[in-house]
Design a protein around this nucleic acid. Structure first.
Lengths: 334, 334
DNA sequence: CTGAAAGCGCTTACAG
DNA sequence: CTGAAAGCGCTTACAG
């Protein structure tokens, strides 16, 4: 059972495929096709259930109405929520999203870019990593809209939408200090991207501003993709060796591991020990006691990304790049 | 900057595009292209960074090396974890996955099927809903491999991979009864799919087998996509009106809402009141006390799905449909 | 051992 | 008001 083609419709309607094509693409008026023909062809299309072959259309036009979304890990709730929001919003504008995870691997990201490129996606939304600059630059040279989100590569001139991680992190530490905490640790990842570095800088700056000593040994940098048992062991070690009274976790999955440590060791969250997580997670609110957290405004981020993309796609000339920084919110839950 | 085409490569190598095509597709030996030519062309391909246009290839061959994945909601951790696993496994076999969420809307699912169809995906992995039967039947008539997962539409002859929800649910209730629970509620959704019905049947059968009264008023059916505040209100109502000593939640997001209710009302989980969740979630283990849960073997489900797909894609004849039911595990955490 | 040519299903500049 | 034809970038049956 082969699918119908535009030729079949033209045959049935006794017109040329040109005419059918004009009608399908809403150019009937502009091309002054008679109303009678328009009506007849449209009826045949409806009756037959004909759907244009998008592959052929893409080959001919060079675009696809598809936006490629490249993220770190779809099973991380921060990314899956953002993906869902972007999907919804793009969908309403007639664009489809295809997405895939990189696990922070440059090779995987390169393959995804090639995949998307060979599928002629119209635009790219990327949470990038160091090492991918060259591949991105090629996309930019081809005049493809590229929006970075979550993290930026400042050496590249492109659009970026992200939260103000420096300030968020600073405020989190500030709130610890105001609670009288003295030995505040940061549990972060070792991935070398701006957004993670900013969280560290905010941490450090707050300590310095409040005249607390900055101790590199209170900063735990967990290798990305390390098995969780090792992460848990490292956090246990940190708690054992140092007399810590507060921890800021720089990602939600690290905070989850941290909460597992507390559960396993029986360490209590009380006036002597506090934690703050990054990026909300159901487990934080439901925890006893509830865990305070830094929340990125997902809705606003998704909205901004889509707006930037659509602007670019509808403009013939290259628009100036925009770096949009949205405040993150510290949600105190105790 | 236009991308290179096979023509450019042929020109540079001073051979025909036929020859280049054979070499790209590994048919050089079979077509007895000389080693010298093979080497020369390959070198030019590498040097120039040429990547075949997959759109053109798809148009010509009618397939795409892409598998379409249609799920309920990518922001639900059950689906995002499965998606991630399927993505990994397919990737290793040279297939890419594109996925999208339906939110249980038949219309959205139809649009996605049409999108995927017009993109010539090679196979479909679908968590279906009632009302989509006809569209699926069309895919089957076109001899496209279709695998249902998570839920089945028994009236359709197709492949299915899922967990044994009846048994899992039965065992959960059985464990409540053995703890001496008497008034056991079920909080489930109103979506009319087999997997949800089985969870209900398991609940009911266990009560009957153990000579406990089955009371329809202890079954709360939450409308899908209802705002969470309403869900929370309904659960509060249930707890208030009935003297319940145990609840089985039929999905993880319902259990999350249930835990929110406990938090808000201050109701304690103790020897007088127990809950079990469905599909694991970080919040369950980290909760105080930890929440018991029914876990579907995600890894095994993903593995089985991919195996079925690859079998079908590599077989020229239609393989017999398989219904693969994998046991779910009750994880008791207290 | 290699190539010319048809064709996949569209869009669109051009012609009438 | 409408259509014939070129062309997007591939693959492959056929010919030599």
């Amino acid at each position: 059972m082969k699918a119908l083609s535009i030729k079949d419709i033209a045959l049935k309607a006794n017109v040329s495929i040109t005419t059918v094509s004009f009608i399908i693409n809403g150019k009937a008026k502009e091309k002054s096709i008679s109303d009678a023909v328009i009506k007849k062809v449209q009826q045949i299309i409806i009756d037959s259930g004909y759907k244009p072959n998008q592959i052929a259309r893409s080959l001919r036009t060079g675009n696809s109405n598809i936006i490629g979304l490249i993220i770190e890990d779809i099973s991380n709730s921060f990314f899956s929520r953002i993906a869902r929001l972007i999907e919804d919003k793009a969908y309403k504008k007639g664009y489809k999203i295809i997405y895939s995870s990189t696990e922070n691997s440059v090779e995987k990201a390169q393959e995804l870019i090639n995949l998307f490129k060979s599928r002629k996606v119209d635009a790219y939304i990327i949470s990038p990593m160091k090492g991918i600059e060259e591949d991105i630059q090629i996309l930019l040279n081809e005049n493809k809209p590229v929006i970075f989100f979550d993290r930026n590569l400042p050496e590249l001139n492109t659009n970026y939408v992200g939260a103000n991680h420096f300030v968020a992190s600073y405020q989190a530490i500030e709130s610890f200090i105001k609670q009288g905490k003295q030995k505040i640790a940061l549990v972060t990842t070792n991935i070398d991207v701006q957004q993670i570095i900013e969280r560290f800088e905010g941490y450090k700056k707050a300590l310095i501003d409040y005249a607390l000593p900055f101790d590199e040994e209170l900063v735990l940098r967990i290798p990305f993709n390390q098995p969780e048992v090792d992460t848990i062991a490292a956090i246990k070690q940190l708690l054992k060796n140092k007399d810590i009274d507060a921890i800021l976790f720089a990602t939600n999955y690290l905070a989850i591991s941290g909460l597992r440590v507390l559960k396993q060791t029986g360490k209590k969250l009380d006036e002597n020990f506090a934690v703050i997580g990054y990026d909300d997670h159901e487990a934080f609110e439901l925890h006893t006691p509830s865990i305070s957290t830094i929340q990125q405004p997902l809705e606003e981020i998704a909205e901004t990304i889509i707006k930037l993309i659509l602007n670019q796609l509808s403009s013939k000339t290259k628009l100036p790049d925009q770096q949009i920084i949205i405040p993150a919110k510290l949600i105190l839950r105790n």
